[in-house]
Computed example of a mutant assay.
Amino acid sequence: MLSYQHHYHAGNPADVHKHALLAWMLDYLVQKDKPLTYIETHSGRGLYDLGDEAALKTGEAARGVSLLEAGLAEAHPYRQRLNEVRFKYGPMAYPGSPLIAAMTLREEDTLHLAELHPGEHAILTEHLTQWDAHIHRQDGFKLAQAICPPTPRRGLLLVDPSYEVKAEYDSIPGDFAKIARKWNVGVLVLWYPLLTSGSHGGMLSQLSAHFPDALRHEVRFPPVRDGHRMIGSGMFIVNPPYGIAEECARLTALFNAKG
């Protein structure tokens, strides 16, 4: 369960989908003059170098951010975070979701990041030193269970597992439902891959039964390399923010145009 290393996949099409929606949601939430809490259960290292050997080996960013970024408006919150990160860390830097959140939130907001992998946790801690983030080397679902409902109660949870253990597809709906019972006002977001095997289907059926009013947005794209089983990206959102349907439509159009 600790073998997954996202730096091989940073900036891929699924990252663009996930991070563009996340940046939009966080930007929407901070417009209101009330503090919020951001919780992430599978944080990774927060910052990636698309020029390092691992990223170049897979070449996934070339089919993701390098191809899709220009299709978004310059004022889009995702593009703003990309520009800020490149200015600060160099032209090949790419922000993970913890850094997107840290750069969007305000001083009055609270940031909780969980990462179980010891190496990734150490790098995450180093990358987030200048922000007042609570960084936990802990199972993310256990962390969310422990701190929900958080203070402030307003906010967003991102669940972004690697799905390298097939049992996650069975356990996630129950874990997600437990968190929702404790934090019924939170924007609860789950990312999932669309796979040629259809492994995600049963999980989504269970989630839809638990949350019939949730928003589900999916984009599809060609495999990033021969033999790759991921053919799309999905976001399951409980308590979706106002206006997100229009943002989803824009992203659908973007991916369809580049597909």
Score class of each variant (00 low, 15 high):
M1I: 07
S3A: 13
Y8M: 11
Y8Q: 12
H9F: 15
A14S: 14
D15T: 07
H17S: 10
L21V: 11
L22Y: 08
W24C: 13
D27Y: 02
Y28D: 10
K32D: 06
L36V: 07
L36S: 04
T37A: 07
T37V: 08
Y38L: 11
I39N: 06
T41G: 05
T41L: 05
S43E: 03
S43H: 00
G44N: 01
R45Q: 03
Y48S: 00
E53W: 00
A55T: 00
L56K: 09
S66Q: 05
G71L: 04
H76G: 05
P77L: 09
P77T: 05
E84Q: 13
V85G: 03
R86C: 08
F87M: 08
F87W: 00
G90T: 08
G90F: 06
A93H: 10
Y94N: 06
Y94P: 02
P95K: 05
G96H: 07
G96I: 04
A102N: 03
M103D: 12
T104W: 07
R106S: 06
E107I: 02
E108F: 00
D109R: 10
L111M: 10
H112W: 05
H112Y: 12
E115R: 04
P118N: 01
P118V: 00
G119N: 13
T125F: 03
E126L: 11
H127L: 01
L128K: 05
T129A: 10
Q130H: 09
Q130S: 12
W131H: 13
W131T: 05
H134C: 08
H136Y: 15
R137H: 01
L143S: 09
Q145A: 10
A146V: 01
C148P: 02
T151N: 04
P152Y: 15
P152F: 10
P152H: 11
L156S: 02
L157C: 09
D160C: 03
Y163V: 03
A167I: 01
E168F: 05
D170P: 01
D170Y: 09
S171N: 04
G174F: 02
F176D: 06
F176S: 03
A177W: 01
I179E: 04
I179W: 02
A180C: 08
A180E: 09
K182C: 01
K182G: 07
G186W: 05
L190Y: 02
L190S: 01
T196R: 15
T196I: 13
G201M: 13
G201C: 08
G202T: 02
L204K: 06
L207A: 12
S208N: 14
R216E: 15
E218F: 07
V219I: 14
V219G: 14
R220L: 07
F221R: 08
F221P: 10
R225A: 11
R225F: 08
G227A: 15
H228R: 12
H228I: 01
H228S: 14
I237A: 14
P240E: 14
G243N: 14
A253G: 15
L254N: 12
A257W: 11
